[in-house]
Design a protein around this nucleic acid. Structure first.
Length: 118
DNA sequence: AACGTGACTTATT
DNA sequence: GAATAAGCCACGT
């Protein structure tokens, strides 16, 4: 068991993201067993983004492409998602209601509580 | 070992 | 509703 086991889990989860869908850091973290490690998930991607991970399918909870900065080319990430059929709203956020996908299974994610929705 | 950083999230003001 | 604070985990120095 490597200390980077968390990275391996993130890798596996991100690699499982279907084309044309996106997920959130929190969902990945939760799937990895650590719900509150959303930051670490993004950090992990930064360490393995060169391993061929579709990190462009990973967005923050609002659907904003926060990782586009580290992705390399800011425009590239958006183009990739659009190329897969993902659409964005005026706020540059992915339409989560349609493209949000959960790594584990379509089980509960919001705990049934109403989201803040900024 | 301790402090600081970070592609986040939630709660409080 | 928007802005600010704190919490969270793992890694780097």
């Amino acid at each position: 068991m490597k200390k980077t086991d968390f990275f391996d889990r993130v890798y596996k989860v991100v690699a499982k993201i279907p084309k044309g869908k996106v997920t959130t850091y929190g969902a990945i973290a939760e799937t990895c067993g650590i719900k509150s490690a959303a930051r670490t998930v993004g950090w992990a991607l930064n360490g393995m983004h060169e391993n061929g991970l579709p990190c462009h399918r990973v967005v923050n909870r609002r659907g904003a492409l926060t990782g586009k900065i580290h992705f390399g080319d800011v425009n590239l990430m958006e183009e990739l998602l659009r190329s897969e059929g993902v659409e964005f709203d005026e706020n540059e956020c992915v339409i989560m209601d349609k493209y949000f996908w959960i790594p584990a299974k379509s089980v509960k994610i919001r705990k049934g509580k109403k989201r803040k929705q900024n």
